[in-house]
Amino acid sequence: MSDRVLEIRGLTVQYGLGADAVQAVRDVTLTLHRGEVLGLAGESGSGKSTLAYGMTRLLPPPGVVRGGEVLFHTDDGETVDVLRMRDAELRRFRWAEVALVFQGAMNSLNPVQRVSTQLMDVIKAHAPRSSAMSRKARARELLALVNISADRLDSYPHQLSGGMRQRVMIAMALALEPRVVIMDEPTTALDVVVQRQILSTLAELRERLGFSVVFITHDLSLLAEFADRIAIMYGGRVVEEAASADLYRTPLHPYSDGLLRSFPALKGPRRELSGIPGSPPDLRAMPAGCAFHPRCPRAMDRCGDHSPELGVPTGHAGDDRTVACWLHPVV
């Protein structure tokens, strides 16, 4: 058990309250291990970002966490539930243990504060007794980690390029040496060359510092390279989870297969690019049975009435792979 860092159990997140509530994440269970990169993939509206914001309780109104547990195992062997924390505890916990890098590098930095201020205020909030000198030194060190020269400390966000801003965000995420970094589409807004550079910096830092990553993207081919394990989300649920090589080689769920055919592979076997017909389901009116069946090329009668459970498919040795699809009955 000692190598589990973060466990999400039965997490359900919804928008709104009462009769108008729309469930965007339904009963999701995921485990993040020490030093691991867990990829979270799905189309927009699949609930992957809602999951990330919901588990950290950063989801803006009208989002609410309906139920479940988000367990974090600290270094001292203690287990805390993020969903049961009071405000002050949550504030202490944030960034110190779980840091985030958001989608829009453009908007993640406060436009009216210098880079140094934004790097240093998080240190000050968590270590109020630290000296201004030591904070400044740490900020300089952090920029060096992501290959940005120290003279950028006094810059304002608008003076930096998109790639540099995202590097600053990564540096900021590492400021308190968290055990988990959640990244929501961290490279989407950047061009391919910059995207590559940032990913390699990230891989190298992870090697060096040993934090775990939850990496959220719609680009499955990116994950195949960067993630250790991948969870595929559809309609607010996890529909398949597997080691990234397995998932990449033999996707079991027709949706995973469709996602893989939506992006050109960076390496490995060539696939015919076909994409997935139709569009993601409307969360307010989810189809009965398997949410994917209206778009599924291999849908059967059963798919329309009964929702398949997530479980280890029969014939698979070990328990490191799960899928929710009637094509692959679970043990």
Binding site: R57, L58, L59, P60, P61, P62, V64, L83
Partner: peptide, 17 residues
């Protein structure tokens, strides 16, 4: 509505029902 049924919604601290 930012509050209903005793749940106050606020930015930065998603309520847990």
């Amino acid at each position: 509505r930012t509050s209903a049924r005793g749940v106050r919604m606020r930015v930065g601290f998603t309520p847990v029902l």
